[in-house]
Amino acid sequence: MTADERQARLAAFMTERFGVEADPWPDGGPIVPVEQHVALAAALQAELGYTLYVYCVASHWPDETPKGGDLIPEHYEVATGLRSVGAGSHVAMWRVSVPVGAGVPTLADLFAGADWQEREQYDLVGVVFDDHPDLRRLMLPEEWVGHPLRKDYAIETGHLPWR
C-alpha cells in the first residue's frame, strides 16, 4: 500500500468512526475532541497498523481576537503523530485543543514512549496530562518556575544564583 492510499484510508476511517471533518485534510491533521483522543490512538494502533510512536507537540496560544472575528480564548494545542512501519510508511496525525487548566488524557498506557514525550511537553509548555504515571519535569531542574515555551515567558529569564 502506498502512502497516498494509506492517507485516503485514514481520512475515511476518521470521518466514519470518529465523525471528524478530515476531507480536505488540514495541515497538521484534523482537530479531534479530547474525549476521543485515547480511543483514536488505540484504534489506529490496533486496527490500522500505526504502531510506531512518533511525536507529541504541544503549543500555547494566548488570547487572540482576529480581525472582524470573535475572541479566541487562551488554549493549548497538542498534536500527536503515529507512523506505520514498512513500505509506504505514513504518519497519522491529529490534534486536540484544550483550555488552560484542563488536562489531556495520556497515551502512556498504549505507547511506552509517550511517557517521556508528554513529560517534556509538560515541562516546557505546561500542558497537564491526566493519569500520567510519572508527570515530573524532564529537562529543567525540579525547582524551576514557569514553562519556557509558553508565549508569555521571556527568553532571557534568569535563574539564580547561576544566571
Binding site: 529543567l140 519556557p148 527568553i155 534568569g158 544566571r163
Partner: peptide
C-alpha cells in the same frame, strides 16, 4: 547567551 537555561560563559562560575 541570552537563553533562560544557559550560563553566559564559564568565567562567571
Amino acid at each position: 547567551r541570552d537563553i533562560y537555561s544557559v550560563i553566559p560563559g564559564i568565567d562567571t562560575v
